[in-house]
Amino acid sequence: MRFFGILLIFFLSASFAQELNCRVIVNAQQVQTTERAIFTEMETEFAQFLNTTKWTNDEFEEEEVINCNLVITISEMPSIGVFKASVQVLSSRPVYGTGYESVIMNFADRDWNFEYVQSQPLRFNENTFTSNITSMLAYYAYMIIGFDYDTFSELGGTPHFQNAFKIVNNAQQTNYSGWQQFNSVRNRYWLVENVQNPQLEPIRQALYTYHRQGLDIMLEDREQAEKNILDALSKVQRANRARPRSILTIAFMDSKSGELIQIFSESSLATRRQAYNLLSNIDPARTDDYKALIE
C-alpha cells in the first residue's frame, strides 16, 4: 500500500482513479509571442493526458495515487507551433506513518523538441510512434510508475520499465533527439537502458531497501532503519564501481543527497562517518556538503 503524505515540494491535491496525480508547469518566459494562451492549454492538456490514461492493470486507491511534477521550460519557438524545451521530472512516495513524502525521481531531460497547435488532440499508441509529445509523456509516466513500484517491492517496476523501453524503440527511426544512444549520455535512452542493465540492478534493489526497509521503519526502529539505508548505499556504491557515474547513479543521488544528510545528521558519530565515506565515494561532487556529517 502507498500511504498518503504531504510532499515538501508543492503538489496539487486531487482525487484520481488512475495511477498519477501529475502537475504540469509550462514556463515559457523566454519565448517572445503574444499568443500566451497556448502555454496554459499545454499545461491542462498534458496533465489531463497523464492523469486520465490508465497506465497499468492495477487498481489504485485514492491514497495510493503517485504524486509527480513535470516542469517544462520552453527555450525557443523556432517557428509557429514548433518548440524546444527541457523537462524536469519529479516524483515522490509517502513514508509510512508520517506526513512526509520522499522524492524518488529527480531527472532533468534537457533536449525535447515538439510540435503543438491549440486544440490538438493528444493520441498515443503503445505499439507505434505517433507524436513526440505523447511519446515523451508516456515514457515518463512509465518511468515514474516503475521507480515507485521498485520502492514497494524489489524490482517491482520491471514491467513498467519495459513499457518505457518499448516507447524508446518506437522512436528510434524518428529525427527527434533524446531517444538515441548516440545523442547524449544523459537522455531518455540511457535512463531506461540503465534501469534494465544487470550491472546497475543493485541501484534498483537499493530503492526497495532504502524506502521499504529504511524510511518506512524509521519511526519504530531507527537503528535498524539506518543500517538498512547504509546497506542501500553500499548497493549503489557497488553499481557505481561497475559503471562509474551512470545516469541512474546520478539520478539517485540527485533525489537523495539532501535527504541523506538530514537522516544521518542525527546519527552516532560512527554511523555518520560510515555514511560520509559511502556518500563521498559515490557522489564526490557533493563531498563538501557531506562533510557536515563529520564536522
Rank of each mutant, 00 (worst) to 15 (best):
E63H: 14
E64R: 01
E64A: 09
E64P: 04
E64S: 11
V65D: 04
V65H: 02
I66N: 00
I66P: 00
N67F: 05
N67K: 13
N67E: 12
C68K: 04
C68P: 06
C68R: 06
N69Y: 01
L70D: 04
V71S: 10
V71N: 10
V71R: 06
I72M: 08
I72W: 03
T73L: 07
T73N: 14
T73K: 11
T73A: 12
I74D: 02
S75G: 15
S75Q: 09
S75L: 07
E76G: 02
M77A: 08
P78D: 11
P78F: 01
P78C: 09
S79M: 09
G81Y: 05
G81A: 06
G81C: 05
G81E: 07
G81L: 05
V82Y: 13
V82A: 12
F83A: 07
F83P: 06
F83R: 03
F83Q: 05
K84D: 11
K84Q: 12
A85T: 10
A85C: 06
A85P: 00
S86D: 10
S86C: 06
V87N: 09
V87Y: 03
Q88H: 09
Q88N: 12
Q88E: 13
V89L: 12
L90D: 13
L90G: 03
L90R: 06
S91R: 02
S92A: 15
S92D: 14
S92H: 11
R93S: 15
R93T: 15
R93C: 09
P94V: 00
P94R: 04
P94T: 00
V95Q: 15
V95M: 14
Y96F: 15
G99A: 13
G99W: 04
Y100S: 03
E101V: 00
E101F: 05
E101R: 05
E101M: 15
